[in-house]
């Protein structure tokens, strides 16, 4: 298994075979592999949006709260007076088939609604304090889905299609707008303990460059796997990483396909900074204490 370094190397290596045999078919495959990885690599990952934006972005961040097993819209922000009028009667509209098909009579909303703010936003009595913020809210009640089951509906919500495989909203936003943050990935998912039905494909990059998929932060310390350096002394890690950097710089020149490797190298550098940035960012307790003391 370990070739004796003192004897001449006689046999053809697998790599040589792939490069030279069958008209260099292996080299073509390798080029395709690197091209795929390089797609967004040159200026397209993380900091620099591909192609720039056609207007100046104003939003600094987007926080999407996906609340699994969510509260009924007719008991929160979407009053349906007809439900109370037809309470107890058979449901008069067309119903899409569902997995359990366990449908009964109409149930009217159990809590009342009041209107709030200058916009007259209707909010259920379950959320009186939210009602007090009515003029800071934009409520969209017109969202519909063609999917009556969890997985397809989740893919539709996160990615725009009932089938997995398309980029998620976070991937699109990061691809189009980039990220100012040098020390953390631009697109993160805070795992509250339950990944939505459909799994991590809900946060995928789809056909966008793979670096736009979400980084999952767990609800534990450390939030990200392997974010703690394994070396007892920082210097030991730094020496190793410096050596890797030097070796990779040589490889870039030789392999003649800088983009894919540059993306990989950038990820490695980001990973190094994340070792410090992730514990700091996910120290919720510390942030709360600081906010209270401020």
């Amino acid at each position: 298994m370990f070739p004796d370094a003192r004897r001449p190397f006689r046999t053809m290596t697998r790599r040589q075979m792939l490069r030279e045999r069958s008209l260099g078919f292996g080299a073509i495959a390798l080029t395709a592999l690197l091209a795929d990885q390089s797609q967004g690599a040159s200026g397209g990952t993380h900091r620099h949006p591909v192609g720039g934006s056609h207007h100046r972005p104003r939003a600094r961040n987007a926080i999407f709260l996906y609340m699994d097993g969510g509260v009924s819209q007719v008991e929160s922000f979407d009053p349906k007076p007809r439900l109370r009028r037809e309470n107890g009667k058979r449901f008069g509209l067309k119903m899409e088939p569902t997995q359990f098909e366990d449908n009964g009579a109409v149930l009217g909303n159990l809590w009342d609604f009041k209107t709030y703010g200058r916009s007259g936003l209707p909010v259920s009595d379950l959320f009186p304090f939210v009602g007090g913020c009515a003029d800071d809210l934009c409520v969209i009640r017109s969202m519909v889905s063609n999917f009556s089951e969890h997985n397809a509906a989740n893919y539709f919500l996160h990615c725009g299609s009932g089938m997995a495989g398309r980029p998620s909203m976070g991937a699109w936003a990061t691809y189009g707008l980039g990220s100012e943050n040098r020390d953390l990935p631009g697109y993160v998912v805070l795992d509250g303990g339950l990944i939505p039905s459909g799994g991590v494909d809900c946060f995928a990059a789809g056909f966008l460059p793979a670096s736009y998929q979400a980084s999952l932060l767990r609800n534990q310390s450390p939030a990200l796997a392997n974010v703690q350096p394994m070396e007892a002394q920082a210097r030991w890690q730094q020496n190793k990483l410096a050596a890797v950097r030097a070796l990779d710089a040589g490889a870039i020149a030789d392999l003649g396909r800088p983009d894919a490797l540059e993306a990989s190298i950038r990820n490695a550098e980001l990973a190094y900074r994340m070792q410090m940035a992730v514990p700091e960012a996910t120290d919720i307790h510390g942030h709360v204490v600081n906010a209270i003391l401020a």
């Binding site: 690599a41 990059a205 460059p209 793979a210 998929q213 350096p229 394994m230 990483l241 990820n267 070792q275």
Partner: peptide
């Protein structure tokens, strides 16, 4: 995942992979 079929594996290139190579106990 073993309970699904995959026509073409995803080829991702994310910082989490770099972290795994840097700090995962198995790699050590």
């Amino acid at each position: 995942l073993p309970d699904t079929t995959v026509g073409q594996r995803n080829r991702s290139n994310v910082p989490g992979q770099a972290l795994a190579l840097m700090n995962d106990p198995l790699v050590q």
